[in-house]
Simulated assay, not measured.
Amino acid sequence: MDDYTILRSQVLLGFTYAKIQASLDEIKTKHPTRTDLINSMEETLEHIQEVKLSWNQFEQEFRAMRQNGYRTELINLELKEENNRIKAEINAIRF
């Protein structure tokens, strides 16, 4: 997953939250007796907020794991380089 996809998902989730919040505010103003809609939309906003928090946690963990992967790859390359150097030294000693 690339940074663009992660950022786009966060923006879309925030935008969806804002649209529902705006609709909820309008319904509360124009139709305050429609508690069925109001309650349902408030519950949906709570669910979206929970998803936003989970997504943010996921993103942080993903970035940390990706950084660890890069570090591991760097260490692996350094060890391969050292291994090749040692092999060259052993071959030089043998001949």
Results as ranks from 00 to 15, higher is better:
N84Y: 07
W55L: 14
S40G: 10
N56H: 13
E26S: 10
N76Q: 14
Q21K: 15
I48A: 03
R8P: 00
N83I: 09
E81A: 12
I27C: 03
E43Q: 07
A22Q: 12
Q67P: 02
R85W: 08
E73N: 14
T44G: 00
F15N: 12
I48E: 04
D3M: 09
L12E: 14
V51L: 14
I6D: 01
F95C: 00
R8A: 10
K28G: 00
I75S: 08
Q21A: 15
Q21I: 01
T29G: 06
E81H: 11
K30H: 03
K19V: 08
E78H: 09
E82L: 03
N68H: 05
L37E: 07
H31W: 03
L24I: 04
Q57E: 11
L24A: 00
S9C: 11
D2E: 13
A64N: 02
Q60H: 05
K28L: 05
F62P: 09
A22H: 13
N84F: 01
K87E: 06
S40R: 11
L45R: 05
R66Y: 01
N68R: 08
R71N: 09
M65I: 09
P32S: 08
K80Y: 08
R63C: 01
N76A: 14
M65V: 01
I20A: 03
A64E: 04
N68M: 05
L13I: 13
T35P: 02
K28Q: 04
Q57F: 06
D25M: 00
I93T: 12
Q60R: 06
R34M: 07
E81C: 10
T44L: 07
I86A: 04
Q49H: 01
I93G: 09
L53W: 09
I38S: 05
T72N: 09
D25N: 10
F15I: 08
L13Y: 02
I75F: 03
T33M: 08
E82P: 00
H47K: 11
N83M: 06
G69P: 02
M65F: 07
K80V: 13
T29N: 07
T16N: 03
E26V: 00
F58D: 04
E78Q: 15
K30C: 05
D3Q: 12
E43K: 06
Y70W: 02
F15K: 11
N76K: 14
S40H: 07
K80G: 08
Y17T: 02
L53Y: 13
R71C: 07
Q67V: 00
P32D: 07
N91A: 11
Q67F: 10
H31R: 15
I86L: 15
K52N: 09
Y17C: 00
K80M: 13
R34S: 07
E89W: 06
L13S: 10
I6H: 01
D2R: 12
D2N: 15
M65S: 10
M1E: 11
I86E: 02
I93H: 14
K19C: 00
N83E: 04
T44S: 08
L74K: 15
A64F: 03
N76H: 13
E89H: 01
Y17I: 04
T33Y: 10
F15L: 14
F15G: 01
T29E: 11
E43C: 04
K87H: 08
N83H: 05
L13F: 05
N76L: 11
L37M: 10
I93C: 10
L24K: 05
E59S: 12
E78L: 04
M65W: 05
E59W: 04
T44Y: 03
L13W: 07
I86P: 00
T44E: 02
